[in-house]
Amino acid sequence: MTRNIHPLLIAGTVLVFMFLVGPLIIVLGAALSDTTYLTFPPQGLSLRWFENIFQIDAFRRTIFTSLQIALLSTTIALIIGIPAAYALNRHRIQLPGWLSTLFILPVLVPELVLGFSLLKNLAVQFNSPIYISLLFGHSLIVLPYVVRVISASLASFDFSIEEAAISLGSPPLKTFFTILLPNVRSGVIAAFILAFITSINDVSISIFLTGPGLSTLPIQLLAHMEQFFDPTVASVSVLLMLLTVAVMAVVERTLGLTFLAK
């Protein structure tokens, strides 16, 4: 089946995939090392750096904050994103053209600029809690994932089922929860999980919206790396990679991983 591919191209592809996977294997090895410094291959196997994560107060706190922000921002994005995706697909003709441009803005505007602007013009200007800016900033950057994934699910939804329900007298909200939502369920799950991992991993928005008393896990990792060069960061990285594996399993079962190539 490998139709007429030059052997050099195949060799190159093997190298590219070694380049893609190798560094992550190195992180895994470094996390399991029994030494107090980062090294690969690991010298002696130990899980003590994983224990160490939970002994450091800052990591415990930021893991909790990151999970909380990811859950809340993803929920907000789903609650407002699903109706928006529905409107953009079903009522496109009635809506003005600039509205779909507006929905591209969270992808178009650099996240650093968004984070800085939320800090400067919302948190400081109006003396509002920085948590609000962090939460809605995250909701904004995950919103495009929700709209895109739900739109893809709606594209394969047969709207005549919905029309049948309405013509038989089903009220709009009931139609939404009993007809539409169950039919795009796998899209909702995939949107949730992709949005969740995006929020957990975010640096560019959070870097401006954290400070004393409020920080997220990736920001804490950056701060830790500037002071220490021990395997703790490697073991946190491995925990995050385990989360990635879980996310991939869910995406594969709902949308199929090839969706990410579209």
Binding site: L24, N201, P218, V233, S237, V245, V247, L260
Partner: peptide, 15 residues
């Protein structure tokens, strides 16, 4: 290819 894509930028730079 998806695995590194979904892994965070801090982890990938740290490597």
């Amino acid at each position: 290819a998806v695995f590194p894509l979904l892994t965070g930028v801090v982890v990938r730079s740290f490597a």
